[in-house]
Amino acid sequence: MKTSKRLEQALKKLYTAFHNNELNPECCKQCAVGNILDNADSWKHLSDSHGVLELNYIGKVHETLGRRFNGYRPLELLKIENIFLKACGYTIPLHYKNEKPKNPTDKDVLFNGLSEVVTFLCYLDNVSNVMDYTKLFEFENEKPKYTLDLSG
């Protein structure tokens, strides 16, 4: 499957962060967007609250100028983070009084968040969802329709 450079880089960064225990929804450098942006926290200045979908003045200026951060527009970054936090079990905006998972860095919690983020990243690039494993179970005439390449 052909993917864009930004999608490939984002997937590699998220994969690495997940497996190196460097993914934390409550840290703007280690959340989904923080990892996509090389553990930078400058993106947090695009909105007034973590997890919301509304750009603030700075975010609107960057969006209007067509600015991209590792290939993603400011509004796309906010949507990625919003999806990640919601799928991890947070109530938006991220705030100590709002609902959150008991253990935010639990692998199952993070996997749920990443699954939704990957689905959205693939959608943005008009690529089939790389997390969709259902094709592995499709069959025709009692034979698998697709083969699984395990040579990796």
Rank of each mutant, 00 (worst) to 15 (best):
K60C: 06
L150I: 14
V127E: 12
F139Y: 09
G71Q: 10
S128N: 15
K102V: 11
I58R: 06
H50S: 00
N98Q: 14
K13V: 04
L114P: 10
C28N: 11
G66F: 06
L65C: 08
T91E: 15
K60Y: 01
H50I: 07
A17I: 02
G59C: 03
I80P: 01
S47F: 00
K5G: 01
L77K: 09
D38F: 03
E8A: 10
T3Y: 07
N56R: 11
K44P: 01
T105Y: 04
K79S: 06
G66C: 06
G89E: 04
R68M: 02
K97V: 12
N82L: 05
T105E: 12
C31V: 07
Y123M: 12
K13A: 14
A10Y: 03
E142D: 14
N70Q: 13
T64D: 09
K12P: 00
A87M: 09
L148G: 05
V61G: 02
Y123F: 15
K100L: 01
G71H: 12
V130M: 12
I58A: 12
A87Y: 10
T91F: 02
G59S: 08
N129L: 07
V52S: 11
L136T: 07
I80A: 04
G152A: 11
Y57F: 11
D149T: 10
E99F: 00
S128T: 11
L124E: 10
T147N: 12
F69T: 11
Y57C: 05
H50A: 00
T105I: 15
N103K: 14
N141R: 15
V109R: 01
C27F: 04
N20F: 03
V130H: 11
C88A: 02
K13L: 13
L55K: 13
G59F: 07
K2N: 12
C28G: 00
V33Y: 06
K143T: 13
K107D: 09
P104K: 09
N70G: 00
E99K: 14
D106I: 02
V52Q: 14
L121V: 09
V117T: 11
E116G: 00
N35G: 03
T147A: 04
F139T: 15
G89A: 04
H62G: 00
K12Q: 10
N39V: 04
P74Q: 04
D38V: 01
L46F: 13
T64M: 07
F84W: 03
L14T: 05
L75M: 05
C31T: 07
F84V: 09
C122E: 12
K107P: 03
K13F: 08
Y96F: 14
N20T: 15
K60Q: 15
L85H: 11
E63A: 11
P25H: 10
T105L: 03
G89K: 06
D48Y: 09
N98V: 04
D106H: 08
D106R: 05
D106F: 01
L114I: 15
L150Q: 06
I80T: 06
H50M: 03
L94T: 08
P104C: 07
D106Y: 03
V52W: 01
L14F: 05
G152K: 13
